[in-house]
Design a protein around this nucleic acid. Structure first.
Lengths: 250, 250
DNA sequence: CGCGGGGTTGAGAACCGTCAAAAGTAGTGG
DNA sequence: CCACTACTTTTGACGGTTCTCAACCCCGCG
């Protein structure tokens, strides 16, 4: 239980009134273009804010540890988070990268099933499970939003599984980059630039590859003239057509 | 749109009163032994039964097709189902095997994201989405059950992803067998016997292996004296200790 | 200036995928 | 009951991609 020891999370009381939790997901039922939409209206946000407190985590800080008693779920406001499971071989498998509008804190039998760590400085709403449970039981509409969000996350997990099933490192990486590009609203930092807040090692643990294979694949994609690396963390897609072909060639 | 054409599903009106839908999942909050419990009580079952009709599918029949308009979700009563995505290369990736107490019919923007096919003769409740949506909006407790079930499925999908991240065929197969054993209540057919209703090809598509690798892995596990194959579809774990070691050696 | 984490590059070996062919199984109809 | 066919599974040989091990580089930081 030495979690949270090295880097202490700073905590403050919940934002009163003005703003509050937000969630985004691709809708279950409504037809759309496949992009994520905001799930909560102002009133719903405010109801959630009533039970929320704001917590901040430094880069690298653990938000919770697998096996800890699950007392809260978190709603990311700003920054990025990875959740991972430590395998018995000392290796780790990253189950998800979370960002603004995402929920984290999935538990089983009252215990977190994975560890959550901040990739960047993170600000998040902390929603105590008891209070959330109570709130949702009296608020079916709000509960429905959570249902939608979970459906979204389930689809994402299945999509992740499909990615992991591929055997070509290049295809995996391309698929990963596409998902990143789709997730972040176009032109977040640069026009069509994809920003990677995680390390090569994180990408490897997410894709089920070795760190070296990821490095080589980045290099090869660049050599082929499909992407360009401005920085090691900023990728531009140069040849969208060949990029898409690579993604589709499952 | 030639789905459902070759094998016609038989349909009948919902069971009045006596029984109805059921769902099982490992709890989110309550401490437990990690086994799944039934989520619905008699009253909840009955409320769901009010909007449900019973549908039957022959072995091999398609329950729905990826891309079809999603009008219902299904709750399996009896039999087993696979859901899969057809990849552009003609290959398919199985996302889940479902059985009694499971839900299927995940959609995105109103369209099913995968195809569902019966592995055995299947009986299921059919829950029209509109009616379900309406029911849940007025029934937060029942909606909460669905939330729990989705959490369960999300954990299962992440577990699947972790399995796919492994590179050793033997470990993948062992992990798969363990999940099957855990899912089916012990001693369903034979004491400690695991029954596989799916083909080797299905297992391969689920594990991200070639059909041949699955066959070889079964053979090797038997050769090593870890499992025994009574039938090609009935597996006995002979050496539990070495089996567990193989599963854990991620 | 030295240090350390993250990243790159190289060489060899192991594992799995692919292709191919044969053996076993189930379901059908004579 | 048997023969026929189609499907599933097994087995073999070969080639390729990635993993592993190892060394080296790059950059920020104390």
């Amino acid at each position: 239980m030495k979690a949270h020891s090295s880097i202490v999370a700073q905590e403050s009381r919940g934002a009163p009134g003005r703003s509050g939790p937000s969630m985004s997901a691709v809708p279950f039922m409504q037809p759309g273009d496949g992009s994520a939409v905001s799930l909560l209206d102002a009133a719903e946000t405010e109801r959630l804010a009533g039970i929320a407190s704001i917590v901040c985590f430094a880069k690298g800080a653990r938000i919770y540890e697998a096996g800890d008693k699950a007392e809260s779920i978190y709603n990311v406001i700003k920054g990025e988070v990875k959740t991972f499971c430590a395998l018995s071989s000392g290796r780790r498998r990253i189950t998800a990268f979370l960002c603004s509008g995402d929920l984290l804190g999935l538990a089983e039998n009252g215990l977190y099933i994975s560890t959550a760590q901040a990739l960047t400085p993170v600000t998040a709403y902390r929603l105590p499970l008891n209070a959330l449970d109570h709130l949702l039981r009296g608020d079916p509409v709000l509960e429905h939003r959570f249902l939608c969000k979970l459906c979204h996350d389930l689809r994402a997990a299945q999509s992740h599984a499909i990615m992991l099933g591929r055997h070509d490192a290049l295809g995996k990486l391309a698929m990963f980059l596409q998902q990143l590009a789709a997730k972040n609203p176009n032109g977040s930092t640069l026009a069509r630039g994809i920003f990677l807040s995680m390390t090569r090692s994180d990408v490897a643990d997410y894709l089920g590859l070795s760190l070296e294979a990821v490095s080589r694949s980045f290099h090869k994609l660049e050599q082929l003239g499909i992407i360009r690396l401005d920085d090691r963390h900023v990728i531009q897609i140069v040849d969208q057509a060949r990029f898409d072909k690579l993604v589709a060639a499952a």
